[in-house]
Every structure is written in structure tokens, then in C-alpha cells.
Amino acid sequence: MFRFSKPLFVFALFFGSTVAIAFENYSGVGRAATPAEVKAWDIDVRPDFKGLPKGSGNVERGNELFEEKCASCHGSFGESNEVFTPLAGGTTKDDIKTGNVKGLSSGELPQRTTFTKVATISTVFDYVQRAMPWTSPKSLKPDEVYAILAYLLNLQEIVPADFVLSDKNIADVQKLLPNRNGMTTDHGLWPGAPAKKGGIGNGGKPDTANKACMKNCKPEVLIGSTLPEYARTAHGELADQYRSFGPVRGTRTLGPEAAKKAANAGTLELATKSGCMACHGMKSKIVGPGYSEVVARYQGQTDAESRLIAKVKAGGQGVWGSIPMPPNAHVKDEDITTLVKWILNGSK
């Protein structure tokens, strides 16, 4: 406070909490960011391509990179639904013309992919650059991001196979996205200024208008849907998800057969927690073999269990191709035994 002149001090006392705080009032707090620091962290790319790094990449290079860094989760053609929802597919040549993905309204689309939704290619550039690949985010150089985007755009038949995507032409490509006209901000769920004042949305006007009726509000009760039988037990034993005392009890939902299933679900959870499911599918190969493939290979071998336990522990290479299985020192021995037994029992 010694730096303030007296009149300013009085002013601050009176209006302390509401007055706009002058620049550098909090003496000794914070410091200027260096240009290198800002450059290191400020990597965002906006729809007007502010923040876009210079660079370029072609479809072919993108294909190589995608196979190497992305396909284990997304499938070779961005079509896989195994780990994440699909990236590519679901749009037509006509959608590229209109800028509205028809399948979204016609109901013909079995599942939305990234390209059936996204209206701005800047979004995909920004996200791949900041968050991909899944296990080593921010490791891609700008040219690699351009190449991977070029490959995805080619998969979506937005650009030809010999296309080179660059900071020079990415804005033109954005104008070809199949769902570029598919976003609306005409709603009441934006908490800032409305569109008519330079912001977004309709100024908070809700789209439903229920009334707080108190008596005889309707002639009858229409039930739209009840809990399906399979869903009653899909979340395990509900009796164990509430206290053993109190005004109610958790409903006992599992019989002995279902309890066994739940125990197996517990093992699946253990497999997920231990990181197994990132590379192995239940049936088919992701990076490593699917569990039913493992069972088929080791069928009838009496030492299968001990051999697999050793393999899971120490890792291995060669049996299923060139990609090595990493050692799993972080998984407890007893858990490895549980997991191997579960896999050999059909992982059901």
C-alpha cells in the first residue's frame, strides 16, 4: 500500500470490491511470460485459423503415419468402433455439396463419426496437435498433423489421393466439409451475450415451458418406458450398492448364475484397469491377439497357464507378430494369475 498516493488509498477503501482493479496492483504476484513460454503453450488453432503453424503434408505420408501411430485404436481407415467412436465414414458426395450430412436427419446413419459432425477442420488440426496420439500427446510435428489430416480428408473423399494439405489451402478445405452447415447456435444455453449483441445464441430463452400445475394436471399417467430386464442386472448386485441399514435396502438383483457373471465382469474390470484391453480385444486382435485367439492357440497345452503367466509378466515378442508385448511389472502376481485363468476359461 505504501506505493499508493493517499487519495487513491481512500478511493480503494470505499470502492474496493467493485472498482476495476488497475494494472499491476497486486505487487509481487506473477511475472511477465517470455515470448518462448507463450509460444510453447499457445498452440490453439481457431476456426479462422489464427494460431495455425506453417507446414504441409500429403495423403501418402499421412497414410504411413496413421498406420504407425493411429490405426491401433482407430483402425487402418479410421473406421474402427473398438476403442473410440469412428473417425471416418457416414457422409456422401452430396453432403459435400450441401454442407449438411443428410444421414443425421434421415435416420440412415447407424452411428455418427467425427466427419459427420465436425464443421471446422481447424478443430481437428487443433485436437490432433494437442492430444494425439493417445499415449504420447503433443509428439506430432506440424507437418505430420497436416499429413494425417490429408489422409483423413482423403478417406472421407473430400480431397484426392495426391493432395497436399498446407497452411495455404486448409481454409479452402474447410469450405468442403460435409457438415459445415450443420451447427446452430440459436438456443438458450449460452451464458454470455446473445447473437444480436455480438455474442452467441438467443439470450437464454428456454425451449420448454412446463407449468407448475398442482391438482388434476392430466387425465392419466402415460408410461413411455420401463427398465428392461437385462438392464436390471447389467450394473452388478444393486444390494451391494446401498448401505445395509437405513430406510431402504438395495434390491437384490443377481441370482447365483448372474453373480458368477458379475465376478467375471470384475475380472474384465481388472483387465481394463491393468491396461490389457488397450491392446487386446475379447475376440479379435487390436494390437495384440484377441483372447479367443489366445485360447485357440493354447488349447490342450497343459502348461498353458504357467507359460502365459510368465509371458504376461515379462513381456514377449514373435508369437503374434512383430509388435512386442510390454512387461507388466505394475500388475500384481495374483492379478496376473486371475487374468490368465479368466482368459483361458473363455473370458466370459
Binding site: 464443421a119 485436437y127 446452430t184 445464441g201
Partner: peptide, 22 residues
């Protein structure tokens, strides 16, 4: 900014086929 979580996810699909953004 139309980031991934406001341009691919956290957008609300309407029967018209339009998505509500932001």
C-alpha cells in the same frame, strides 16, 4: 474457438439434423 469438445462432442443433435453448438 470451436475446440474438439465444442465442435465434435458436447454438441446436441436435433431431429432436424442440426447440432446445437456452445
Amino acid at each position: 474457438y470451436a475446440t474438439k469438445d465444442e465442435a465434435v462432442h458436447y454438441i446436441d443433435l436435433l431431429p432436424s439434423g442440426q447440432h446445437r453448438q456452445y
